[in-house]
């Protein structure tokens, strides 16, 4: 963790959201987030951005009949 705790949180925010940190690092970050509104606000924003990208993209409609067309295409090409 950097000497400036806010810079430390900024640099470890992505690995924190990815759950890649050690329990020690996690508790340092969470302790800081508990007391610093500046970092907390940015943390919420980053977490929500992550969530939004995933939710929006996982809601992409899959074209109707995709699986059937894949099956037919593969049979037509002699693969299945």
């Amino acid at each position: 963790m950097s000497l400036d705790p806010c810079l430390g949180v900024e640099s470890q925010l992505q690995p924190y959201l990815d759950r890649q940190l050690t329990p020690g690092e996690v508790s340092m970050i969470e302790q800081h987030l508990g007391t610093c509104a500046y970092c907390r606000e940015r943390y919420h924003f980053e977490a929500k951005l992550r969530d939004t990208v995933k939710t929006v993209c996982c809601g992409d409609p899959v074209p109707e009949g995709l699986v059937e067309r894949v099956r037919l295409h593969c049979r037509g090409q002699g693969a299945a």
Partner: peptide
Amino acid sequence: LYRIALRLSGSQQTAEELVQETYL
């Protein structure tokens, strides 16, 4: 796979073609 293909290619038609070729 289709959703990944869609985000890689940016086009629905290309995404479906990529998925078909992948399964082939």
